[in-house]
Design a protein around this nucleic acid. Structure first.
Lengths: 113, 113
DNA sequence: CGGAATCCAGCACGATACTG
DNA sequence: CAGTATCGTGCTGGATTCCG
């Protein structure tokens, strides 16, 4: 059986719908797993620039994966939290992480050969 | 509980181990799901350049995800097939696809708002 | 503290031409 | 048929500076 030339025609234009592959989305979701986090709280473990973190958070907000709540205080305080939709990503995410953990040595061995 | 600053220190340098996020790896795996495929067979549904396809296949070969077998014929014939390791990626891959299919409308609705 | 503005580098990807 | 060679591009992410 030959491959359907239009096999991927319904996959949107090019990239997958959610940016699983980008450098930050998955890690941000992991960081928000246990509850809301502040901007400055996220920066530390991610070792990310403020600019890039802002961009990523805004994109994820647009996609309905998380919410941004700013309290009108001074100094400012902003909290980010996963939406129910964002939480549903934790499962497939765990599948990827499990694969990575299980097969990492195997890949590294192949790569060095 | 505050986030561990070294939360991701064991995730390699930056990118995930396998390039799930890149434009092609996942699609190539899907194309090889039902058995070996020839170079020219892969090009059609993927709508990919020969150069980029070659690069992707070589990278996946280095990681032990697939094998390349060239038959010394003329005209040349080359076949690519998933290794057992590559096959283990089909499962987490399916989890992602299922999520995408299930929540695509939701994301698109959020994005347009 | 939580950004915004600006500038810049690397790399993935694409287009085209050529080859054994 | 299955590539390689060359060139060009956009986009993601990084560094730095400034602001309310």
């Amino acid at each position: 059986m030959t491959l359907d030339p239009d096999l991927f025609s319904d996959c949107g234009t090019d990239r997958p719908l959610i940016r699983i592959g980008d450098k930050w989305t998955m890690k941000i979701i992991v960081c928000l797993r246990d509850g809301p986090r502040r901007f400055g709280e996220l920066i530390v473990p991610l070792r990310i620039t403020a600019k890039v973190l802002t961009e990523s958070l805004r994109a994820m907000e647009r996609d309905g994966l998380l919410t941004r709540t700013a309290y009108g205080e001074n100094p400012p305080r902003v909290e980010y939290a996963l939406t129910p939709l964002g939480r549903t990503l934790l499962e497939p995410l765990a599948a990827i992480c499990a694969w990575s953990a299980a097969h990492q040595p195997e890949v590294l061995r192949a790569r060095s050969a």
